[in-house]
Amino acid sequence: MTLELFLAFLVASLLISISPGAGAVNTMSNGLKYGVWQSLPAILGLQLGYGAQVVIVGVGLGALLASSEIAFSTVKWLGAAYLIWLGYQKWREQPVALKEGEVSTPVSAQKRFWQAAFVNLVNPKATVFLVALFPQFLNANMPQLPQFLIMGTTLLIVDIVVMIGYASLAAKLSTWFKDPKHQKSQNRIFGGMFIAAGSALASYNR
């Protein structure tokens, strides 16, 4: 991969990560509730799901998903249902009245990790998009594995940096949300965003 081609792919990776989606919603929700560093488990979970998408495309299953109506529909509806369920849970989440010096009991880092991983893992739109993206930057006359490794690593690193940025932005607003009324608004805003993301996924057509 030439430097010019890599830089073009880097820009594409940045645009992909910055574009609001289920991963960004998940990260901002965690950033608001737990702060930047406590959001890292969820951010790393997102990368596990994202990395799995890259591997799926790399070994050719992405093409199968793109061409099989049954496989596409199954993953699409599974992902949409999961996101809508997360949104429903977030919408119903009760505000925590914080007293001076007290903090809310967080969801375990392990649970947040796997929830985030599943958010990216069951997103068929990401798979189909990667199937369309990767061939634009592949050199057919060179070994494909090193190229996939470069592109996959670039996507994950860029996404980690962008998600940390999203978490940092959200954490700056955390003080405002300590009030129970503001917490309730936050839960319904992000619950609605998860439901919207799930609905958008359900309506996505190849």
Score class of each variant (00 low, 15 high):
residue 82 Y to E: 05
residue 98 L to T: 03
residue 49 G to S: 05
residue 67 S to Q: 10
residue 186 Q to F: 15
residue 27 T to F: 07
residue 89 Q to G: 06
residue 112 R to C: 04
residue 126 A to G: 12
residue 176 W to A: 13
residue 125 K to V: 05
residue 155 L to T: 08
residue 183 Q to F: 03
residue 146 P to R: 10
residue 113 F to S: 03
residue 35 G to I: 02
residue 111 K to R: 14
residue 33 K to P: 03
residue 25 V to R: 06
residue 103 V to L: 11
residue 149 L to A: 11
residue 54 V to K: 00
residue 121 L to E: 07
residue 104 S to A: 15
residue 131 V to W: 01
residue 200 A to H: 03
residue 5 L to A: 12
residue 56 I to S: 09
residue 91 W to C: 03
residue 141 N to A: 12
residue 75 V to N: 01
residue 21 G to E: 15
residue 99 K to N: 01
residue 95 P to M: 14
residue 191 G to K: 06
residue 41 P to H: 02
residue 91 W to A: 00
residue 73 S to K: 00
residue 143 P to I: 13
residue 69 E to C: 02
residue 61 L to R: 01
residue 175 T to K: 14
residue 11 V to I: 15
residue 140 A to R: 06
residue 127 T to K: 00
residue 197 A to V: 06
residue 127 T to V: 14
residue 133 L to H: 06
residue 138 L to P: 01
residue 55 V to T: 04
residue 161 V to S: 14
residue 190 F to D: 08
residue 149 L to P: 09
residue 196 A to E: 07
residue 157 I to T: 15
residue 18 I to L: 13
residue 72 F to H: 00
residue 26 N to W: 11
residue 57 V to H: 04
residue 78 L to H: 03
residue 98 L to C: 05
residue 1 M to V: 10
residue 36 V to N: 04
residue 55 V to G: 04
residue 180 P to W: 15
residue 161 V to A: 15
residue 16 I to T: 13
residue 204 Y to S: 05
residue 44 L to E: 00
residue 6 F to Y: 15
residue 80 A to F: 05
residue 47 Q to T: 07
residue 105 T to L: 13
residue 148 F to H: 12
residue 65 L to Y: 00
residue 22 A to H: 11
residue 101 G to F: 02
residue 38 Q to T: 04
residue 124 P to G: 07
residue 57 V to I: 00
residue 192 G to Y: 08
residue 94 Q to S: 14
residue 32 L to I: 12
residue 55 V to H: 06
residue 72 F to N: 02
residue 69 E to A: 10
residue 168 S to Y: 14
